[in-house]
């Protein structure tokens, strides 16, 4: 085991996959000397050369389109889009080409591409650099959507994403880049679609992912002191999401709370709550609840941005309300 940051863990995964398979390469803006916005590519260009760690023009459509062309012609590109917000500049290529090519061409081809587009608030970067767009991609048939919450997962899930023959939207969280944790450098790729129980509990199932995991664990600790035992489930992969794990937990606890940093309306919490309501209605002790951001663009000003965040206190308050809601 080694202690490393979330960014270093991803760099290790990419490095290992590039050493293992010469068809793996990465492209995006500023990957070379700067090593990407968070140093997640640092040193890789010196090791693998400019043809496998490719610095590109600011041309998101063609970064994505060329990666698709390269993927259908025998390589395994890792696309760096820097911010999920810029993923929208490549949305046509992701949705209309990458996600559909295999299906609409009758299974003639796979599109093994990883699209890294980090989500979430960080340091007052405002409305065009802070969005959490994970639910948008979940809506698109053909895509796998991954959102790692820990350094170990950013290693094992990125390996899995690179080995996937399906296109993977890989959404790191910008506030996690510098977080440290234990990573097993020899870890096998994670299995996509498996959630992790980050804290066991018996009264309430709290489903979360990505940057909200830490706050949810804090909330669960606080709730414990108030006599509420919260089970925290980290989804890790949003599509496919681990319905079995969520259903098993909710069947035991009878309560479902979903917390995410994305806008609540139309967020992925809605899908989880709806599935649980459809299939486990009679096992529920109270209605499912969701916590997410208000439906506003993300503001720059610190106190305004803070109002968009789901806080541990809000999670605890929601849990308390659910415990008394019969």
């Amino acid at each position: 085991m080694a202690v490393m940051t979330y960014a270093e863990a991803a760099r290790l995964a990419l490095r290992q996959e590039m050493q293992r398979d010469r068809r793996v390469w990465a492209l995006g803006e500023d990957l070379g000397p700067e090593g990407g916005v968070a140093g997640q590519y640092l040193g890789l260009q010196s090791e693998f050369g400019r043809s496998r760690i490719v610095d590109t023009p600011i041309s998101e459509s063609t970064i994505m389109g060329s990666a698709i062309g390269a993927a259908i012609c025998g390589t395994r590109p890792v696309v760096e889009l820097r911010y999920a917000d810029f993923g929208l500049c490549a949305a046509d290529e992701i949705v209309n080409q990458a996600a559909k090519a295999r299906y609409m061409l009758g299974g003639q081809v796979r599109v093994p591409v990883v699209v890294r587009q980090p989500i979430g608030f960080r340091d007052g970067m405002a409305a065009q650099h802070s969005q959490s767009t994970e639910a948008w991609w979940v809506h698109v048939p053909g895509l796998v959507v991954v959102a790692p919450a820990t350094p170990a997962d950013n290693h094992a899930l990125l390996k899995a994403a690179i080995r996937s023959d399906d296109p993977v939207i890989y959404m790191e969280h910008k506030e996690l880049w510098t977080r440290t944790g234990e990573v097993d450098p020899g870890a096998e790729p994670a299995v996509l679609g498996r959630a992790a129980v980050r804290r066991p509990g018996s009264d309430l199932t709290l489903v979360t992912w990505s940057g909200m995991l830490g706050d949810c664990l804090t909330a669960a600790e606080v709730a414990q002191t108030q006599g509420i035992s919260i089970e925290v489930l980290d989804l890790r992969t949003l599509w496919p999401w681990d319905r079995d794990a969520v259903f098993a937990s909710v069947t035991r606890t009878g309560r479902l709370l979903v917390a995410h940093q994305a806008v609540k309306a139309g967020g992925f919490g809605a899908e989880i709550a709806a599935e649980v309501a459809e299939h486990l209605f009679h096992a529920l002790r109270c209605p499912p609840r969701r916590l997410g951001a208000p439906r506003t663009p993300v503001p720059h000003s610190r106190p305004l941005e803070a109002l968009c965040r789901v806080t541990p206190a809000q999670v605890v308050a929601a849990a308390r309300a659910m415990m008394t809601d019969h």
């Binding site: 068809r23 063609t62 060329s66 698709i68 390269a70």
Partner: peptide, 14 residues
């Protein structure tokens, strides 16, 4: 067209 330039990149890489 963007797919074509990517295909050319694969040709180069491989």
């Amino acid at each position: 067209v963007t797919i074509a330039v990517g295909a050319a990149q694969a040709v180069r890489l491989l």
